[in-house]
Computed example of a mutant assay.
Amino acid sequence: MDRRAAVTAPGAANALFARAIEESGFEVIYVTGAGIANMHLGQPDIGLTSLSDLVYAVSSIADVVDLPLIVDADTGFGNALNMYQTVRKLERAGASALQVEDQIFPKRCGHFDGKDVVPVDEMLGKIKAATDARQDDNLLVIARTDARAVLGLDAAIERAWAYGEAGADLTFVEAPVDAREMAEITRRLAKPQVANIVFGGRTPDPGRDHLAEMGFSLVLYANATLQAALHATYETLWALRDHGSLDPVADRLSSFDERQRTVRKPHWDSLEKRYALVAGAGRD
C-alpha cells in the first residue's frame, strides 16, 4: 500500500471468481459484500447479508487461493462490540485486510441514494475495536466514510483524517463524483487511499495510470466480474430460449478445459493418483 501505485483489486463474490482472479495474475482479491448479497442471496446490497454469510465466503475463498484477501466487512454488523467479533471471525477465516465503514446499520451500497452516517465518535470507537481485535498486526484496517453523499466532500475528508488518526491503516472516501474530487482526497489525506470504481456508479474511471499519478494505493473493481457474468448469463439463457442451442454464444463460453483448469482439477487428479499408490502399496 505504501507504493501508492493504484494496485488493482478485482472483486470476488465466491471461490470460483477468486480462482479466476488469481489465474489472471493479480496481486490481491477484494471479497465484495455487494457481490455476496447479489450472488449468494439474490438480493440488493442493503444490509441483508449476515456475518455468517461473509465468514463462509471468506473461508471458502481462502481455501483455494494464495493471494491476500481484502474483505468488505460493512459496518461490522452492529456496534463496536459487534465490530470486535467481526474482526476476530474474519481474521480467522483468512482476511488480510478489512474494510469497515461509517454508515448507519443496516448499510446500503455506497453508490445508492438514501445513505446516512453514524456520528464520528461512534466510528472512532469501532476503529479502536477493530485494531484491538486483530491478532496479527499485519491485518490492515481500512476505514471507509460514506459522508461525501450526505455531508459533502470536506466533511468526508475530515472524517477520513480522524479515522486515520484513530488507527486505521488506510482510509477510503466513497463515491467522489469526478476526477477533481479524487485528486483532492489524495492531496489532503496522508494515509494510503482507496478508490472504488463501480461500472455505472457515481465515480469515474480515470484508469490505473492516472489513479497512480493521483496517489491512490488501491483501486477496487468490486463487482466487475459479477456484472460481466450476469450479462453473459442473460445472453446464454436468451440463446437457449430463442434458438434452443448454444451456437449463437459459443464464442463467449468458457471451454470445458478452461473451466477444469480454473478449479484445479489436474491438482486433484494428481492427489487421487498419489493416494491410490499409497493404498496399493499398503495392500502389497
Rank of each mutant, 00 (worst) to 15 (best):
N82C: 11
L81D: 09
R108K: 00
E122Y: 09
A95N: 15
N79G: 13
K126C: 02
L67H: 14
K107V: 03
Q85N: 14
L90P: 01
V117P: 11
G76C: 11
R92C: 13
L67K: 15
K128V: 06
L69K: 11
K115S: 00
N79T: 10
I127T: 05
A93V: 03
G114M: 08
F105T: 13
P68E: 11
A97W: 13
L69H: 06
D72W: 09
L98A: 14
V120H: 02
M83G: 12
M83A: 14
P106N: 08
A93L: 01
L124P: 05
L98Q: 12
M123S: 10
S96D: 08
D121P: 02
D113E: 03
G125P: 00
D121F: 05
R88T: 05
A95P: 13
L69I: 10
K115Y: 01
E101V: 13
G94W: 03
K126M: 10
F112M: 02
F77L: 02
E101L: 13
F105V: 15
Q99I: 07
A73G: 15
R108H: 04
G78V: 09
R92H: 13
A80D: 09
C109D: 11
G114L: 08
G114S: 07
A73C: 15
G78T: 09
G114T: 03
M123R: 12
F112A: 03
G114D: 07
V117A: 10
L124W: 05
Y84Q: 05
M123G: 08
G114C: 08
D102V: 04
Q99W: 04
V87N: 03
K89S: 13
G125S: 02
P106S: 05
Y84F: 11
K115W: 04
V87S: 02
G76N: 10
A97C: 11
G76E: 09
K126T: 07
F105H: 14
C109G: 14
P106F: 07
K115G: 03
K89V: 08
F77E: 03
G114Y: 03
F77G: 06
I70V: 15
K126L: 08
T75S: 05
I127K: 04
M123A: 09
G110H: 06
C109N: 12
D72M: 09
V71D: 02
R92G: 11
L90G: 07
I127V: 08
I127P: 06
D113F: 00
K89Q: 14
G78Y: 05
D121E: 11
D72L: 12
M83Q: 10
F77R: 05
I104N: 07
P68C: 10
V118I: 14
Q85T: 15
M123H: 08
E101T: 11
G78Q: 07
L81W: 07
D102F: 06
R88F: 04
H111G: 00
R108E: 00
S96I: 03
N79I: 05
R108S: 00
D74W: 13
N82G: 12
Q103H: 03
V71Q: 00
K89G: 09
K107P: 01
F112N: 00
L98Y: 15
R88E: 07
F112P: 00
Q103E: 01
G94Y: 04
D102G: 08
D72T: 09
L90K: 01
D74V: 11
M123D: 11
V87I: 06
Q99S: 09
L67M: 15
V71M: 04
L98S: 12
V71T: 07
E91C: 01
A80I: 05
V117N: 08
L124I: 12
A95G: 15
